[in-house]
Simulated assay, not measured.
Amino acid sequence: MRPLHVAVVGAESSGKSWLTKSLASALLNRGQEAHIVDDVLGQWYQREGRTPLRFEQMAIAQQQADTTQWLRRSAPEAWLLSDSTPLVTAVYSQILFDDESLYPMALAHHGLYHVTLVTGLDLPGVANGLERVSPQVSRHFDTLVRQALEHSGIAYRVVYGQGQKRLNNALLALGLESDDDAAQQVRDQGQFAINQGRSLWQCNDCSDPTCEHTLFSRLLKRRATFKS
């Protein structure tokens, strides 16, 4: 399979870094070259110990984009896995400062990725020492990032599950075989069953690109119709 440039986005403590590193490790174990673009915003928080001010947000987003572009040029034939993108900074800037000015730059950059993985909110919260966001903010972030992707026509896949199950779902979402043959068989059989109307499908067992993505799209359309 041709190497892809993959964006991993999601709310705080939703497992972005773990998933990015686990995907890179799985690819390397398969003999693939893979590089990670680190989360610039997360590194900034850890270094400064505070929330970036409004005027500092664009520089952080631009550094994330520049680092990604540099790696794209340096290793054009390798997998590139981005732990967050400028879109994450743009969404937090809207939440914290009601500032939507970062979206044009962030979404233009996001068009460079082949696949976008959105980390689901099914993981238990993990404290990072800064206590930046609440569960309510995480849910708000999740909605805003999906809306931004939807309105820009950028396809995405939502990844659920914990541990190996989450990694397997992400690999399947990328069109790769899972690290666990049994997990892939369960998923394929379950999807066949729901398509035949014989079983209910659980979102945290799926990560099918046409599943929750489609449901969320329909929800947005219903809201738009109601408002009009």
Rank of each mutant, 00 (worst) to 15 (best):
126 V>H: 13
204 N>F: 10
183 A>K: 13
105 M>A: 07
147 Q>S: 13
203 C>Y: 12
197 G>L: 11
175 G>V: 06
150 E>Y: 14
191 Q>D: 12
128 N>G: 15
220 L>I: 07
221 K>L: 03
106 A>P: 00
219 L>T: 05
162 Q>H: 07
169 N>F: 02
174 L>N: 10
175 G>T: 06
186 V>F: 15
168 N>F: 09
130 L>D: 08
187 R>C: 11
180 D>V: 08
212 E>C: 06
121 L>Y: 00
139 R>H: 09
219 L>S: 14
139 R>C: 09
211 C>A: 12
184 Q>I: 00
126 V>T: 12
108 A>Y: 01
108 A>Q: 07
206 C>K: 13
136 Q>D: 12
136 Q>H: 10
192 F>S: 15
175 G>N: 11
171 L>Y: 00
150 E>W: 04
118 V>W: 00
104 P>G: 00
108 A>E: 15
110 H>Q: 05
200 L>T: 09
120 G>N: 00
163 G>V: 06
208 D>T: 08
215 L>C: 13
134 S>T: 06
207 S>Y: 08
211 C>S: 13
160 Y>D: 00
163 G>K: 08
114 H>P: 02
158 V>P: 01
205 D>C: 14
176 L>W: 01
194 I>E: 02
128 N>Y: 01
153 G>D: 04
206 C>H: 11
180 D>W: 14
209 P>Y: 09
175 G>Y: 09
158 V>D: 06
181 D>A: 15
105 M>F: 14
119 T>E: 04
115 V>S: 08
184 Q>S: 02
218 R>C: 08
179 D>S: 14
151 H>M: 11
131 E>T: 12
139 R>V: 06
178 S>E: 05
221 K>C: 03
204 N>Y: 09
188 D>R: 13
196 Q>M: 13
109 H>I: 01
173 A>N: 08
204 N>P: 03
133 V>F: 01
141 F>Q: 01
194 I>F: 02
176 L>T: 08
108 A>C: 11
191 Q>M: 10
148 A>V: 04
105 M>P: 14
117 L>T: 01
187 R>L: 09
108 A>R: 10
186 V>A: 15
174 L>H: 06
140 H>C: 03
184 Q>Y: 00
149 L>W: 01
130 L>C: 01
154 I>L: 05
173 A>M: 12
189 Q>G: 09
185 Q>K: 15
209 P>L: 08
156 Y>P: 01
177 E>V: 04
182 A>E: 02
107 L>P: 00
221 K>H: 03
155 A>M: 09
169 N>R: 14
208 D>A: 13
171 L>E: 04
126 V>P: 14
128 N>V: 06
162 Q>P: 04
164 Q>D: 10
121 L>P: 04
115 V>I: 07
215 L>M: 13
111 G>Q: 00
172 L>R: 06
192 F>L: 15
152 S>V: 07
208 D>E: 15
200 L>S: 11
155 A>F: 03
169 N>C: 05
158 V>L: 03
165 K>N: 12
217 S>V: 11
166 R>L: 03
133 V>S: 03
197 G>P: 14
207 S>I: 06
193 A>N: 11
111 G>S: 07
200 L>I: 09
219 L>V: 05
